[in-house]
Structure formats: structure tokens, C-alpha cells
Computed example of a mutant assay.
Amino acid sequence: MKKPLFSPIILALLVLLIVVLIPNKWIEGMIPKERINQAATELNPFMFQGKYVQQKMLENKHFLPIYGSSELARLDRFHPSNYFKVTGEEFTPFLIGRGGTESLIHLLNFSEHTNQLKGKKMVFVLSPQWFQPQGTDESHFVPNYSSLQGYDFAFNQKVNPTIKKEAIKRLLKFSPVKDDPFLSTIYQAEITNDPWMKRKASLVRPFAYAYRNLLVKKDLYYSLVGGKPHKREISHKVRDKSWGKLAIQAEKMGSRKSKNNQFCITNGQFNKIKKMVPSLKDSKKGASYGKSPEYDDFQLLLDVLKESGAQPLFISVPVNGKWYDYTGFPKEGRTAYYERIKKQIQSQGFQIADFSNHEYDPYFMKDTIHIGWKGWVYTDKAIKNFYEGKKVEEDLGRLN
């Protein structure tokens, strides 16, 4: 006798129903305690775009979150994740960010965790390249956007309404938000006085809330399963070294790894762009990072951190001066960024480690845009001083 063809479908539906109905607390109870430690250097997008792992991390004084973008993946012996591990510091860096993770993405992330940010020390690495004249675009926003964080932002009653409305206006410009019928309706109702839109939002809100709860459960299951372990080499060669000796060590490593060009770019990276280099000469004449919508996005981020009571240290990374000169990118177009971003941060009472005077410091950068061997040494020193409660801006001179 043949079994009914629809039995696998029924079985699948039953399994799905069980998965959905399992209480969140039960799933949380099954998540291994070591998951948070494992995620600290995984650079796993599911963790960036989720909620549970970051929430537990922020509640734990043992972790020092470091937010940024693609530079966080440049793991070497001088990287904070290696340096502070082998030197036995009382905190563990927790990396949050990847390529294209710019101000709006970080804003949603911080808004998700306002309850855990009060008094929390953190490090935020800034990249000049975020501040393009057109601001962030779809190619950077879409891969890093989190539907869970987007929906939680819609229901968030703790973010200042003025900040929230300005953020929503920006978010509605991007396809994952404006093309989501539930979310876009609720967002639009937040920024309009149109009675019809308000009524429409009240109708879709229960469905949006139910969908948001499914996203929360999905995040818990991802946290339970965990990401792919990130294998990295731990180097003890930075242990028991003065800052000066570390800088010399970093210079030697940089010299070995960037021998085939005059820009102090890693050999491998330069080989990738070698054929294009002649065509890039003077290609950036008239460019500037001094004006960009990103400054307004960044201000919203600062406002959320300020209101939540967070204690951030901002790392102002320079550009590769030799390379930028070669491409004709004007010095004043870079200086305008350094000065504006520093003023913007300090106006909020936050600390900044301003490394803009290292544009021409060999091996401070690893390539055209990413912080390198020597740059990490200076960053490590700034982080250590910050964590110990020292004024970072007063101690950014020579390493000793």
C-alpha cells in the first residue's frame, strides 16, 4: 500500500510548528556558555546582524567591544585581538564589523542594545572612506543590514523620537527598508501626520510584531548552532615588549611584507592593483572627504551613544599619504575630514585617538586604506590607556 504523498509535507509542517513554538527561554538555555568567547573574533555576519550574542557580550565586563569595518579582519600579531590576549590583559576584545559596515548599520546595532550600553567602554574605528560625497550606498548597506535590528528599531520606544525620525528618513532610502511592506509602513507612519498612514500602520503592526518575534527566534537558533570557527594564529612575540620595541618589530614586519612598491602596500595587495596603478595617477584631483551625508548619519550614532551613557573611544585612522598623493587626492580634502570628525566627536565629550599625523608614517597602513602593523601598535597603546582610565589624547606621541 502506497503512503500518501503529502505525508512528508505534513511532517515538515509539524517540525516547523514545533521549532516555532519552542519557548525562547528553552533555546537560550541550550546555547553553550562558550559561544560568546567563540564569537569574539569570528567576525560572523549572523552575530553582527543578530541580538542575543551581542547582548550577552555587552552584559559581561570581561569584553571590550571594538566596532569598525573591514580593518577588523586584518588579524596579525599586533592586532588588538592577539596583543591583548597574549599580554594577559583583563579584557578580551570583541570584534563587531566587516567591510561596508558604516554609520547607519552601527546606529541600528547600538539602538538595539541601549539597555546594555550605559557605562560600557567600547572602541570605534573610523574610516575616512566612509565619508564619500554621496554617503553610504546600496552596495554597502544591503549586505550589512539586519531585518531584526530594523524591526526592533520600529518598536523601540527608548531612542529619542527626534533621533529616531531622522534615522528613519535615511533608512527609507534603502531597498531592504523601503521594499518591506510592513516595515516601510510603520516607518512612514512615524514621520508623517497623515491619518490614513497612521491607520494603515496600526493594521500592519500586529503582523510586523509577529514577524519580528520570528526573527528573534531565528537569531536564537543561529546562536545555538554557532558559526564556523575562525582559525587564527596566536603569536606570543609581542609579549613583554615596550611600545618602542613593538614599533620596531612592526616596522621590520612591514618592510618584509611590502617590498615591491614605494607606497608601503603589502606585496600581495599591490600585485592585485599593479596593472591599474599608472591609470590611477592624479585620478582623484579635486576629491574630498570634507562633505558627506555620512556626517549626519554619524551624528545620529553619536546621539544614541550619548543618550545611552556609553563610553566610547574613537580611533581616527589616517589614509596612506603616499598613495593619496599619487592619485592626486588633495591634502586639504583629507585634512577637512580629520578636523571635522575630531570636532564632531569632541563636541559630544567623547575621546578620540587622532592618528591623522601618521599619513606618511611607513607601515602605519597596510595598504591604501586599512590600518597596518605599526598602526595597530599605536592603537593598542591608545586602547590600553583608555581602558585604564587615562586621557588618550594627551599620550599619542612617540612610543616608548
Rank of each mutant, 00 (worst) to 15 (best):
Y360S: 04
S184K: 03
T379N: 05
F270Y: 05
N400Q: 11
K306N: 13
F314Q: 13
P8Y: 11
S184M: 04
N271A: 13
P133V: 00
F174S: 01
W376N: 09
F141H: 10
T92W: 09
Y83E: 04
H140V: 15
I273D: 03
Y151N: 09
I186H: 07
E251C: 07
A39Q: 10
Y209V: 08
E90Q: 10
H79I: 07
W243P: 06
N213L: 15
V277F: 04
V317G: 00
K2V: 15
L300W: 02
E102W: 13
F91P: 02
I27K: 03
G97S: 12
V15L: 09
F155W: 10
N260M: 13
Y83A: 07
H62M: 10
Y222C: 07
R205H: 06
T136M: 14
K384M: 10
A208V: 08
P32L: 12
K231M: 11
G286W: 05
L64T: 08
L108A: 02
F174V: 03
L14A: 08
K284Q: 14
Q54M: 12
Q132Y: 14
L300G: 00
N82Y: 08
G226D: 06
S242P: 05
T92I: 14
G309Q: 03
L5E: 13
D354M: 09
K285P: 02
L5S: 12
K285W: 00
V304Y: 00
S70H: 14
K274I: 07
Q348M: 09
L171K: 01
N193A: 15
I345Q: 00
I18N: 06
P4N: 15
D297H: 03
L72V: 10
K259D: 03
C264E: 02
F355C: 08
R239L: 05
F63C: 09
E394G: 00
L399W: 11
I163T: 15
K241T: 01
V123H: 03
Y360V: 08
L399H: 12
